[in-house]
């Protein structure tokens, strides 16, 4: 079999060197990687949104809300109510509540305030 050579003797050899196809198995592996990367990007995207949301204002808001609620309950309910006047069923609950809340609100001993 003979074939006419173009001006550049090398070009037919080079042309022969370009004949290599991508095996299906490799193509499948590469596309599986692409799919996995997309899935990871989507997942990490949601994580980033949640993290930014939490860092931005949600966490301080929740913390502030919890703090305000505890302080409100303490100042409005626990402090005015003498332990002796509280119903029996509330007694131990108030004791626990006071133990937890008093240091947070900044009062070590309610008796210091004259109650």
């Amino acid at each position: 079999m003979t074939q006419k050579i173009p001006d550049d003797d090398l070009s037919l050899f080079l042309e022969a060197g370009k004949q290599q196809e991508l095996p299906d198995a490799l193509r499948t592996r590469i596309l599986a990687d692409a799919e996995m990367c997309l899935a990871k990007q989507t997942a990490s995207g949601w994580r980033l949104v949640l993290r930014d949301w939490a860092r931005g204002w949600a966490m301080p808001s929740v913390a502030g809300g919890v703090g305000a609620t505890l302080a409100g309950l303490y100042l409005g309910l626990v402090m005015p109510l003498s332990m002796y006047d509280a119903p029996i069923w509330m007694d131990s609950a108030l004791g626990v509540f006071e133990t937890v809340t008093a240091p947070i609100v900044g009062v070590q001993d309610p008796l210091e305030l004259g109650f």
Partner: peptide, 26 residues
């Protein structure tokens, strides 16, 4: 592709991978 288009990944694979494979094989 970065926006989630898998067809773009297929097009890029068909465009680049055979050339990279030839290069790496040699």
């Amino acid at each position: 592709f970065a926006q989630g288009d898998l067809h773009a990944a297929q097009a890029l694979t068909d465009l680049l991978a055979p050339r990279l494979l030839r290069f790496a094989t040699r």
